[in-house]
Computed example of a mutant assay.
Amino acid sequence: MNCYERLRARGLTLPTVPTPIGNFMHCTREGGLLFLSGQGPLDETGKLMTGKVGATVTADEAYRHAQLVGLNLLAVLHAELGDLQRVRRVIKLLGMVNATSEFAEHPRVINGCSDLFVDVFGDAGRHSRSAVGVGSLPNNITVEIEAIVAVRD
Rank of each mutant, 00 (worst) to 15 (best):
M1F: 10
C3Q: 15
A9F: 09
T16P: 12
V17L: 11
P18D: 09
T19M: 12
P20V: 03
P20M: 07
I21T: 14
I21C: 11
G22T: 04
C27Q: 03
T28Q: 10
E30V: 14
E30Y: 12
L33C: 06
L33I: 13
S37Q: 10
Q39S: 11
G40N: 04
P41V: 09
P41Y: 04
E44K: 08
G46L: 11
G46M: 10
L48W: 07
M49C: 15
M49Y: 12
T50C: 13
T50E: 14
G51Y: 01
K52A: 05
V53D: 05
G54S: 05
V57W: 03
A59I: 05
A59N: 06
D60K: 15
E61M: 10
E61D: 13
A62K: 01
Y63D: 01
H65C: 10
H65D: 15
A66V: 01
A66Q: 03
A66M: 04
N72L: 10
L77D: 02
H78T: 07
L81Q: 08
L81S: 04
G82H: 11
L84S: 02
L84M: 08
R86H: 12
R86W: 07
V87Y: 00
V87F: 02
V87P: 03
V87N: 01
R88K: 15
V97Q: 06
A99G: 04
T100M: 01
T100H: 00
S101W: 09
A104V: 12
E105Q: 10
H106K: 10
R108D: 08
R108A: 12
R108F: 15
S114T: 13
L116H: 06
F117I: 03
F117V: 06
V120D: 00
G122E: 12
D123C: 04
R126V: 08
R126N: 07
S128W: 11
R129E: 15
V132G: 00
V134L: 12
V134N: 07
G135N: 13
G135Y: 04
L137H: 04
P138L: 08
P138H: 07
N140M: 07
I141D: 09
I141L: 10
V143G: 00
E144W: 10
I145F: 06
A147I: 03
V149L: 07
R152K: 13
